[in-house]
Nucleic acid binder design. Sequence first.
DNA 1: ATGACTTTTGGTCAAAAAAACAATAAGTAA
DNA 2: TTACTTATTGTTTTTTTGACCAAAAGTCAT
Lengths: 251, 251
Amino acid sequence: MAEIKEKEPVLEQKSQFAVPYYAISYDKFFQFGLSVDCVVFGYHEKRLKVLLIKRGAEPYLGSWALPGDLVYPNENIEVAAKRILKDLTGISELFMEQTKVYGKVDRHPAGRVITTAYYSLIDIAKHDPHASAWAEGVYWVDLEEVPGLAFDHDEILEDALQTLRQRVRHQPVGFELLPQKFALADLQALYEALLNEVYDKANFRKRILAMNLLINLKESQKDVPHRPARLYSFDKKRYDELIAKGFSFEL
Amino acid sequence: MAEIKEKEPVLEQKSQFAVPYYAISYDKFFQFGLSVDCVVFGYHEKRLKVLLIKRGAEPYLGSWALPGDLVYPNENIEVAAKRILKDLTGISELFMEQTKVYGKVDRHPAGRVITTAYYSLIDIAKHDPHASAWAEGVYWVDLEEVPGLAFDHDEILEDALQTLRQRVRHQPVGFELLPQKFALADLQALYEALLNEVYDKANFRKRILAMNLLINLKESQKDVPHRPARLYSFDKKRYDELIAKGFSFEL
DNA sequence: ATGACTTTTGGTCAAAAAAACAATAAGTAA
DNA sequence: TTACTTATTGTTTTTTTGACCAAAAGTCAT
């Protein structure tokens, strides 16, 4: 390794970490609040939605906002994120991923609160959110119809959406979002909703099948007013493989 | 927008945000410390390095670590990040991007300190880091030779590297990292170092030139013991365009 | 000055992937 | 039986990629 500078004596203007840590001035530096805000995306009937609350308390009483809460001083952040999501949707087993931290000095009227954003993606039909501690009501709002949000939540949502799309392009998604048996058109509708694009049906089919990810169930749709589509299910093994290795989906 | 549940009365177990904010118990929740850790990548002579310090104070005295510092309660996080970087390298005008937050309860012996990681990328030749407040010494360490680091800095570095590579694949990089005039081979060496891959020379050339990003300077290298290469410079206008729109670089 | 050597540069070519689109199949509904 | 709708398969064309060749333009040693 190349040393660029000779070692120099430590300068007089020390940081708080340059003094013995037991001497740190707690009052001065340890006065941040930490919160988590959850961006829960939900998929339902070919549409992408996001879970919002109507705030039942100050500040921003009555405003729309992302569900969030303060983290306890002895609680890990991911734990807090899962706690909040669970309180809200009753479920815990699903992926939650951090996007960014938001820490503007004046972002919260109650003091210096920095917040960590997490996002996840669930099948709306399978979960039943309920108003709780935080909110008067919890609502699934179509992405196209999101109103202005409290705090800096507009920005948080925007960033989370971008991260979600980024992720969806490189990791398969679906197990939790589609029924056990589904048609290729369902999968296509899912991707079209997530990425907000439109694909050619025939080519989409070829691409997906080439991934070797689906099991042909030799079974067809019922009760559709047209030619019924063949049903498929995910090949769990191959699916996990792709999640680990990643893939590219730039149709 | 679809309402999933009727509004319910707010439950008895309220979160701290569900009460008037002036009633928040400050002692209980507002006791986090916030720090920033900087992952400064540097490019020099076809190698990618990272700026590390040798800690001059407890905890982890004598260990290698990423440069970082506490954020002031009235200071924005990005401002803190730039302050730290500036103290360390003397420069301020360059991109710094957040990667993640790290907030494990026990990650810091001095208390509950959560840290935000930022990364950036500079030309080593153009900057001269110096030991300062935080450290006995500051060193450029080749990525292949990074020792074990203090705190959770190994993880932070790993994540930052991944994010850097992700970004480099989708946004052009170069202005700050190459001299005004450079040969295509220089640009190729840069990408090979950043992404740790090897490309075919002829095809690399075609790809890059097709982007319409370079200006042919009608001027050649001097003093090389072989056929001198044509020199190019970036087309500033086109460069900014690509930074805004993004591009794909999956050679 | 000549040939050896090195890297640049321009080009070809085949293989692979993507995109566009045409034709047929399998149902329902009237 | 025909009209209608979506599914499915297949073909064709175009674009992109990857591998590789050979000439070009210098330096260097002899």
